[in-house]
Computed example of a mutant assay.
Amino acid sequence: MTAQPVRRQAVIRGEAPWWLLPSVEAALCGPAGAELRELGHTGAPVKEARDFTAQTLTAWGLAELSADARLVVSELVTNALRHAGPPQGVRLLHRSAHLVCAVLDSADHPPILTTADHFAESGRGLWLIDTLCSSWGWHPLPHGKLVWASFPTPLPSHHRTSA
């Protein structure tokens, strides 16, 4: 298997892949979307989101992305909890050559990429997301916002070229 280069995409406030927003704003239908609602009713929303992500990616045949995607979803849910209250949901979308992890929250202010002090115990979540993902961003919604992160997905084995 050859490594696929990650192509960075500039993130502009409110922009998301053209295919993401209709799928997120409407009810998810089709085989490539999954949603976890009522997050946190067990008292462990970050764990719930990580487990949901791992199970969904395994079912989709994308288990090799599970570790990075679980970390990104953990950071998105943690940011929502800290800055907006309980998240309204986690959505995973697999379209073409992309996996998108999205978290809906009730705050209307954007996520802010900050520089944490060397000894700070927090403040690096969006840096992790920026490092692990090919693109990320946020989009305002009527009652909150959607924060999303995109990964390139591996090509199906019949499309891969040998080295």
Score class of each variant (00 low, 15 high):
residue 16 A to P: 05
residue 37 R to N: 09
residue 84 A to W: 00
residue 126 L to S: 02
residue 142 P to Q: 08
residue 63 A to K: 04
residue 37 R to W: 03
residue 139 H to E: 13
residue 69 A to S: 10
residue 161 T to W: 14
residue 25 E to F: 10
residue 93 L to V: 06
residue 37 R to L: 12
residue 24 V to S: 06
residue 90 V to A: 02
residue 43 G to V: 04
residue 2 T to W: 05
residue 124 R to P: 03
residue 10 A to T: 15
residue 94 H to Q: 11
residue 98 H to Q: 15
residue 100 V to E: 08
residue 40 G to L: 02
residue 148 W to E: 04
residue 74 S to C: 07
residue 127 W to A: 15
residue 54 A to F: 03
residue 159 H to T: 10
residue 60 W to Q: 10
residue 9 Q to N: 09
residue 122 S to Q: 14
residue 113 L to C: 04
residue 36 L to M: 06
residue 28 L to E: 12
residue 100 V to T: 12
residue 4 Q to A: 09
residue 163 A to N: 09
residue 141 L to G: 03
residue 81 L to G: 07
residue 19 W to F: 13
residue 93 L to T: 00
residue 154 P to Y: 01
residue 41 H to A: 11
residue 56 T to W: 02
residue 39 L to I: 11
residue 121 E to W: 10
residue 115 T to V: 15
residue 67 A to C: 04
residue 142 P to I: 04
residue 54 A to M: 06
residue 47 K to N: 10
residue 103 V to Y: 01
residue 157 S to A: 15
residue 146 L to R: 04
residue 2 T to I: 12
residue 137 G to H: 02
residue 154 P to K: 00
residue 64 E to F: 02
residue 8 R to D: 05
residue 87 P to V: 08
residue 109 H to T: 14
residue 96 S to I: 00
residue 48 E to Q: 13
residue 78 T to H: 10
residue 154 P to G: 02
residue 126 L to I: 07
residue 133 C to T: 15
residue 93 L to G: 00
residue 17 P to L: 01
residue 32 A to N: 12
residue 104 L to V: 08
residue 46 V to G: 03
residue 78 T to S: 13
residue 138 W to K: 01
residue 58 T to I: 05
residue 38 E to C: 09
residue 92 L to G: 01
residue 163 A to D: 14
residue 51 D to S: 11
residue 55 Q to P: 00
residue 107 A to E: 08
residue 56 T to R: 07
residue 87 P to M: 09
residue 96 S to C: 07
residue 99 L to Y: 00
residue 94 H to T: 05
residue 74 S to T: 06
residue 137 G to A: 03
residue 163 A to R: 12
residue 37 R to M: 07
residue 77 V to N: 01
residue 144 G to P: 04
residue 93 L to Q: 02
residue 61 G to Y: 04
residue 81 L to S: 07
residue 44 A to M: 09
residue 130 D to K: 08
residue 79 N to P: 05
residue 116 A to T: 05
residue 126 L to W: 12
residue 50 R to F: 01
residue 51 D to I: 07
residue 109 H to G: 06
residue 80 A to L: 06
residue 1 M to I: 09
residue 51 D to G: 05
residue 100 V to Y: 03
residue 87 P to E: 08
residue 6 V to W: 09
residue 88 Q to Y: 06
residue 149 A to C: 02
residue 61 G to E: 05
residue 137 G to S: 03
residue 27 A to R: 13
residue 116 A to Y: 05
residue 20 L to W: 03
residue 58 T to N: 13
residue 127 W to I: 10
residue 141 L to V: 07
residue 15 E to T: 11
residue 70 R to N: 11
